[in-house]
Amino acid sequence: MSGDVITTDAVIIGGGPCGLFAIFELGLLDIKCHVVDILDKPGGQCAELYPEKPIYDIPALPEVSGQELTDRLMEQASPFDPQYHYSQMVTELIKHGDNDFELKTDGGMTFRAKVVVIAAGGGSFMPKKPPMPGIADFEDTSVFYSVREMEKFRGKDILIVGGGDSALDWVNNLQPIAKSMTLLHRRPEFRAAPDSVNKMRAIEDAGKMKFQLGQVTELLGDNGQLTGIKGKNKEGEFELACDTMLPFFGLTMKLGPVADWGLNLEENLIPVDTEKFETSVPGIFAIGDINNYPGKLKLILSGFHEAALMAQQAFRYINPGERLRFQYTTSSSSLQKKLGVK
């Protein structure tokens, strides 16, 4: 995945509903897209925060769940063969010249694009960091919030904290290469796929890992090297030895790197015009929850409208001098061809 530079027309930062619809609107104008999202799946807030909740204000869909809306947007975008890159955060956005942008991700990918669409919503979904004194000193040496390279954890005394899918998956996946594995969770029930829970129980029964009921209260060690933790449960306090800790408490939205791209943010939002939804840097657009303009409503339907207008200006940058013909999908045979209508 890393190393080579991917050259494309457009990079969309964020695969929430607005980013997904932007693929469609750009696709109708023959603009090819790559989409990068820090989540491991498409849908942004709809998929991460409320996949099962019904939404009632999507035009012509009287009731649709967050997940179903995501699935439908993916289907609608699919004729344009977008390339999705999940579990990657865009960390850098550099302008090299007119219609020449470079983007880098924390996963080592590099893109070169003619236009950039920031559809970053409420910001990046980032792992929650337990608010414990001194935890920052251990981060990236002994405390990790995600696993990028499993090899890094070989031969370690690992403590995993949490009871969701991530916690259980990593107990199961890292146990074979760890020196020792302990799972710490506040209750004996787990909010994870029954399959992973059974697998963990089997490993526990085989004596290859330990389950400890309780919550972490204090980190032990110094100079960035963890030696153990203090914890508590109903019975009282306890200590666990470990040199590596992986806390999995879910995700929360933080603005993240968007703040560093020189876009004149106002109250963590990117100001745009309402004709092209362009930022202060020509060729960089912002749509959906991340942008702001007089009268802005943070609604999915607003983001859809913004995507359509943004695409018009993106076309002009990518095809200078070419006339943009306004067409309906119902009647234009060229649009229907692009959509694969038979």
Partner: peptide, 11 residues
Amino acid sequence: EEDMLDFAFDV
């Protein structure tokens, strides 16, 4: 709610 509290700290 009980499930979601797994994602809170110091429950």
